[in-house]
Design a protein around this nucleic acid. Structure first.
Lengths: 206, 206
DNA sequence: ACCTGAACACCGTTCAAGT
DNA sequence: ACCTGAACACCGTTCAAGT
C-alpha cells in the first residue's frame, strides 16, 4: 500500500491540495479532514504533516489556489472601454466562478484561520491584482489625478459584489433574489452616481 | 453536582444559549463544543440533546438571537427623512453592532448549516424587518409606484454593506481600508445614482 | 421525569519504530 | 530519508441506568 518514495515532495503537496479541493467541493469544510485527505491519496495521516504545518495550512494554501484561479478567470475578460459594461462583466465572471465551485469558493470566506495567522503575501498580492482589474475598468470615470478615488471605488464595488454573491447566493436574504439583478442595480447606480459627481471626495480622509 | 430539576426547560434553554454566546464570543466557532457548553452550565453533555436536536441547532438559535438584537439596534436609529443620512446611520449601526461582538456576529455567516437545513421562518421574518428599515429610509427617492425598485435598492445596499463589513472588517482586502470610508463611498454614489436617474428600471425583470 | 456518564465512532496531531 | 500507524487528547451523539 505505501507508495515508497514514488512522489517527490512537490508532487505530494500538489496531490494533497488536489484531493483537498475535491473533498471540499463535495462535502464542504465539514468533510475536509486530515484522515479523508490521506485516504484519498493513499498515504497515512501523518504524511500531511511533512509538507503542511497543520490542516489549517492545507486550507489556506487551497484558498490561495482558488484565488489564483479566480484571478485567471477575471483576467480573461476582455475590456470594452465602457466602464459599466466592463465592471458588470467582471462581476459576472466572479459570480460565474463562485457558482461553478460553490463550496470551494465558500471555503475562502468560511474558513477563519486561527488567531494571529494573517493573509499570506501571495494572497494579498492576488487580491491587489483582482482589484487592479476593477480599477482599470473604472479608468475612464476618473481623471488621472484621482487614482486614489478610483481605487477606492474599485474596493467598494468588489466588496459589495462579494456581499451580494454571498448573501443572495446562499439564500440568506429573506426572499430569493436574482444575483444578476442585484449586480446590475449596484453597478448601474454606483457608476451613474460617480459620473454625476463633478467632484470625487477622498472618502479615506474625512 | 447535578442541579436536579432546578431549572425549567425554558430556563435551561436560555442558559445554554447564553453560555454558547459567551463561548462563541471568546473562542469562536472552534471553541463552541457541546462539552464546553455543558461544563459552563454545570450539566452533562447529554442534557443539551433534551432541548436541542444537535449542536447545529444551538448555533442556529444563537444566530436567531443575534439577528433579533441587531434588529433592535437598527430599529432604535431615528430617521431624519434625508435618505443619505438615514441609510448611512443604519449602516453605521450595523457595523457598530458587528464590531462589538465580532466573533458572535461572524458566526451568523461562518456557520453553514448542514445541507437541507433552511433559514427558519423567524429568521426570514427578521431579515425582512431589517430590509424594511432600509427601504423606509429610501422612501423619498422613489415614487409610490416604484416600491419594487425601492425594495430592490434596499437589498443591494444591505448586501453591499455586509460585504464591506465582512471583507474590510476581517482584513480580507489587500490593504487595510477604513470601513466607514467604504460605506460612505457606497452610499453616497448609490443614492446619487438613483437620484440622477429619471427612470428606475426593474432589475428583476431583464 | 430528568439527568447522567459511559460508550461509540469519529477527530487533529505527534512521534517512536520500521523500511 | 520517508512514511507508518499506534497513541493521546479531544470531538458529537446516543442511550441504558440511576435518582
Amino acid at each position: 500500500m505505501p507508495p515508497r518514495g514514488e512522489h517527490s515532495r512537490t508532487e505530494l503537496k500538489a496531490l494533497i491540495l488536489e484531493a483537498a479541493g475535491t473533498i471540499a467541493e463535495s462535502d464542504g469544510l465539514r468533510g475536509l479532514t486530515a484522515r479523508a485527505i490521506a485516504q484519498a491519496i493513499g498515504y497515512s495521516p501523518g504524511t500531511l504533516y511533512n509538507m503542511f504545518t497543520d490542516l489549517d495550512d492545507v486550507v489556506v494554501q487551497l484558498n490561495t489556489e482558488t484565488l489564483d484561479a479566480l484571478h485567471d478567470r477575471l483576467a480573461a475578460v476582455v475590456p470594452s472601454g465602457v466602464p459599466e459594461a466592463d465592471v458588470l462583466a467582471l462581476a459576472r465572471a466572479y459570480v460565474g466562478f463562485a457558482r461553478e465551485r460553490p463550496r470551494r469558493w465558500n471555503l475562502v470566506f468560511e474558513h477563519n484561520p486561527a488567531d494571529g495567522r494573517e493573509l499570506s503575501e501571495h494572497q494579498r498580492a492576488r487580491i491587489e491584482d483582482l482589484l487592479a482589474l476593477v480599477a482599470a475598468a473604472l479608468e475612464p470615470l476618473f481623471p488621472a489625478s484621482e487614482a486614489r478615488q478610483r481605487d477606492h471605488a474599485a474596493r467598494v464595488l468588489w466588496s459589495a459584489t462579494q456581499g451580494i454573491t454571498a448573501l443572495a447566493g446562499a439564500g440568506k436574504l429573506a426572499r430569493a433574489e436574482s444575483v444578476d439583478g442585484m449586480l446590475r442595480g449596484l453597478i448601474t447606480y454606483q457608476l451613474r452616481g460617480i459620473a454625476a459627481s463633478s467632484e470625487h471626495p477622498d472618502f479615506e480622509v474625512p
